[in-house]
Amino acid sequence: MVNTILFVAGVFMALGILLALFRFIKGPDITDRTIAFDVMTIASITVIALIAHFAGRIIYLDVALVYGLLSFLSVVAIGRYIERGL
């Protein structure tokens, strides 16, 4: 029962990532793509937590922490590059 609900949740997350991927490929400007990148990585953090649940290992959550941190920093670097502040 629980696993079925979580499976459906995973499908929704995958659909969200796919929609963001569509915007990434289509997006007319680099800023749109950066936002799509942001959404994809935020959704991926949840996917990582879900994998950790199915594997039953708490240690996998460390990866989600570092993942979120580094994606944040990439976005900030891209933003500073766009506004000529790097």
């Binding site: 680099i30 950066t34 994809m40 990585t41 991926s44 990582i48 994998i51 594997a55 240690i59 990866v63």
Partner: peptide, 20 residues
């Protein structure tokens, strides 16, 4: 940016392959 995203998704794949 696309290369960076490839890396990030590859990292999820590594996690799936039991390599945290």
């Amino acid at each position: 940016i696309a290369t960076g995203t490839v890396g990030l998704f590859a990292s999820v794949l590594y996690l799936l392959l039991a390599a945290p």
